[in-house]
Design a binder for these strands. Structure first.
Lengths: 371, 371
DNA sequence: ACCGGGCCCTAATTCACATTAACTAACGGC
DNA sequence: GCCGTTAGTTAATGTGAATTAGGGCCCGGT
C-alpha cells in the first residue's frame, strides 16, 4: 500500500526547479503561457509528463467558482421505464450537448420519489451544479419560485410560464410548423380547412392555433372554422372514446356539408383524439385522405408499438404530421443554459423547429369540392 | 448585473452569530451535529435556508469530504444510440440504486475517449464524485492504473482483471447459471452433452466452462467433450460465417455418431455463433430440439429487432438460455461501491445470479439415444 | 553610470470547506 | 477552592490551483 499522492503543481514545480505559479501558467495554457520562456515551458511540461500529472478540477473549480457540472432535474423519474421512449431523446440531447461543451451531467435522483420537490430538506441540492436543465410536466411552482428567488440558473425543456416571473426555456416551434402545414394543404388546392383543438389554455395549444391563423392569412384565405373539443389536454383515457365520439361525428357531418376538405388536429398532450377520429371517420364513411385530408399537429405516442388495453385507442395510421425535435430541444436547453451562465442576463427563450413527417393522410382535395 | 456571490458558510456563520466551523458541523450532518446545541443548530439551518445556501462541492471534495455524488463513467458514450438496448438496463440499475441510497449520479461525459491527453481535464475529473462505477468494454488500462494509484474508489460492471492489481467489480454468475442448465438437461434424461466455446481466455469463458464441468460432475456423468471454436470472442462479423460453417458441420456429424443429445453454447461476446449453428444444423438435417437440444449460455443480441445487413446472421429462435441481470448488476455495483467508500478496504468482487429463460430449444432426448 | 522598460518569474493571497486542537464555561466531586 | 469533566464553540490549518502584485535581470538609450 503505497499511499502515493497524486502529483500536484508543487511537485512539478520542484522537479522543474520553478515555482508553482509558473507551472500553473504553463498548464493552464493560452493566456499565461505566452509569458513563459520556451525552455521553462518545455521543462515544466516535461516534468508534468514524467510525474503523470493531471489537473485537479476540484481545486480549479474552487478558485474559478465553476464546477463544470450541469444538472438535469426531472419532476418525474429520470429513467422512467414506461415513458422511456418519450424522454430518451431529451436525455440524449442534453447529455451529448453537455459533453460537447466539456461539462459533466449530474442527474438528480437523490430527491425523494413521489411528487418531486427540489427544496425538500431546506437545502438545495441543485446548486452543486453550475446550472440546471429541468424536465417534466408536473412542475412544482413553489420550487420554481424559490429557484428564481435564489437566482439559480436553470432552463426548462418545454414552454413554462409562471405568473409574475420570466422563466428561461426552450420549446418546439409549434406555430411555424403548423403554419407550414397549412401552406402545404393550401398549396395542394385545399380552400376550406377546419381546425380541431382541445379545450385548454396551454401555451402549445395557443401557439398552434396562432400558427393556423397565420397560415390561413398567408394563403389569402378568409378565416377558417376552429372547433374546440370538450376535453382538456389530458382527460382520463377510458373516457375519451365516450366523450368524443358524438361531437366528432357531428363535426364530420358539418364539415362535409360545408365543403371542408382538410382538417388540422391539435392532439394536445393526449393522442387519443386522433384515434377516436379515425374510428369515427370509418363509421361515418369518410375516407382519409380521399374525402378529407388530415394532418396531425404533433406526434402520436407511444410511437411504434401499442400494447395492452390501450391498443384499441392507438392509431396505426401514418399521419402526415410533424415531430418534436426532442434531441434538439435537449441540446438547445444546454446551450441556452450556458449562455445564461456566461451572461448572467435576464431569462430568455428559444424555439426549435419541428420536423415535418410525410405521412399518407394528405392528398389534393376531391375534384369539384371546395370551389 | 449584481455578481451576487453564492452564500458560503461564512455568510451563514455571520448571520447566525456563530463561527464557520460550527456551520460546517451542522451542515455536514450526523457526526458533528450531535455536539452542537439544538438552538444553535436550528439557528444555523435557519440562516442557511434564508440565504439559499448550498455546499460548494469543489471545496468539499478538495478537502476530501463526501459529496454524496456517485460517478458513472463509460468507456463509450453514456447514451449510446446503437447499443441503447444493451446499456440501458445498466444505467437504470445504477441510477435507481443511487437514488435509493440518497446519492446523485454524475455522468462523466466531458472526459474525451480516445488517446488521453494529460493536460485536458483528464480522468481525475472523476474525483468530484465520491466514487465511480465504470462501464464499457474498451477499457483504457493506463487510466485504470492511474485510478488505482490514486486510491480512487471505483467498481467495474463486468469482470475486469489487470495484472498485478486487484480490481473491484460485479459480474454475472455465469458458472452457476451454466451448472443449472446442465442439471436441467440431465434432469430431462440427457446423458451425453457437448460444450462449445470460443477460442479465448477471458474470464467469462472460463467461468462458464467451469460451471459446465461442475454440473456434469454433480450429475454423476463422466467428463463430457468440450470443443473450442477457432474464433476469439469478437471476430470480424463478416468472416464468422466462413470461419465457422465447416467446423460446425463436422462437429454436428461427430456428435450425432457419438450419441450427443444436448449442446451448450458459449456465445462469447459475439452472438453470431449461434446464428451460424442454426443455419448449419438446418443444412445438415439436424432438428433442434428434436434431434439435439441446445442451450445458449447468454443472450442473443441485439435482442428484439434485427436490422440491415446483419439480418441474415441474427438468430430468430427462442433459445433456452439465461439472461444477464443487467439492472441487477448496475444496482449491485452501486452497493459495492458504497461498501468500498465506508470500509476503505481492499478491492472486492461480487457476483449476481443470471435468470434462466425457458425457450423452445430443449426437450427430452430422442428415445433410444444416449443409452 | 543611470534610468526606463520589457521580459520571466516568484511570493503571497484567495477560494469554500473540513478537521482538529484548544479553549471557555458550567458543574461537581472531593 | 482545586482539579477534572463535559459540552459547546472557536482559531488555526490544510487542500490544489489561479491570480496578482511585484521583483530581479538584462539591455538599450542617454
Amino acid at each position: 500500500m503505497s499511499p502515493r499522492r497524486r502529483a500536484t503543481q508543487v511537485d512539478i514545480a520542484r522537479a522543474a526547479g520553478v515555482s508553482q505559479a509558473t507551472v500553473s501558467l504553463v498548464i493552464s495554457g493560452g493566456h499565461g503561457s505566452e509569458q513563459v520562456a520556451e525552455h521553462t515551458r518545455t521543462a515544466v511540461l516535461d516534468a508534468a509528463t514524467r510525474l503523470g500529472y493531471s489537473v485537479n478540477t476540484a481545486a480549479r473549480s474552487l478558485k474559478g467558482g465553476r464546477n463544470h457540472i450541469l444538472g438535469l432535474y426531472t419532476f418525474e423519474s429520470v429513467f422512467p421505464t414506461d415513458q422511456r421512449d418519450f424522454y430518451y431523446p431529451f436525455l440524449l440531447g442534453v447529455e451529448r450537448a453537455t459533453a460537447e461543451v466539456g461539462y459533466d451531467l449530474l442527474l438528480f435522483s437523490s430527491v425523494t420519489p413521489g411528487p418531486r420537490r427540489i427544496y425538500s430538506d431546506g437545502i438545495n441540492r441543485l446548486k452543486v451544479a453550475d446550472g440546471c436543465v429541468l424536465l417534466g410536466r408536473q412542475v412544482d411552482h413553489a420550487d420554481i419560485a424559490e429557484l428564481v428567488r435564489d437566482d439559480f440558473p436553470f432552463v426548462f425543456v418545454g414552454r413554462r410560464e409562471l405568473p409574475g416571473v420570466e422563466l428561461s426555456y426552450v420549446a418546439p416551434d409549434y406555430g411555424t410548423a403548423t403554419r407550414d402545414l397549412v401552406l402545404r394543404l393550401t398549396g395542394l388546392g385545399h380552400r376550406r380547412l377546419a381546425y380541431l383543438r382541445p379545450d385548454d389554455d396551454q401555451e402549445p395549444t395557443r401557439d398552434r392555433e396562432a400558427g393556423f391563423r397565420a397560415g390561413v392569412a398567408d394563403a389569402g384565405l378568409p378565416d377558417q372554422p376552429v372547433h374546440v373539443l370538450p376535453v382538456g389536454s389530458s382527460p382520463p383515457v377510458d373516457q375519451v372514446l365516450d366523450l368524443l365520439s358524438e361531437p366528432l361525428t357531428t363535426l364530420l357531418t358539418t364539415w362535409r356539408s360545408d365543403g371542408v376538405t382538410a382538417l388540422l388536429v391539435d392532439p394536445g398532450e393526449n393522442d387519443r383524439t386522433i384515434a377516436v377520429l379515425e374510428q369515427v371517420a370509418v363509421r361515418a364513411g369518410v375516407r382519409i385522405p380521399e374525402d378529407l385530408s388530415v394532418v396531425l399537429l404533433g406526434e402520436p405516442s407511444p410511437p411504434p408499438s401499442a400494447r395492452g388495453a390501450d391498443a384499441e385507442l392507438v392509431s396505426t395510421r401514418d399521419w402526415t404530421r410533424f415531430t418534436l425535435p426532442r434531441e434538439g430541444l435537449g441540446r438547445a436547453a444546454v446551450h441556452l443554459l450556458l449562455d445564461l451562465l456566461d451572461d448572467d442576463g435576464p431569462a430568455r427563450q428559444l424555439t426549435v423547429p419541428c420536423l415535418p413527417v410525410e405521412g399518407d393522410t394528405v392528398c389534393p382535395p376531391p375534384v369539384g369540392a371546395g370551389a
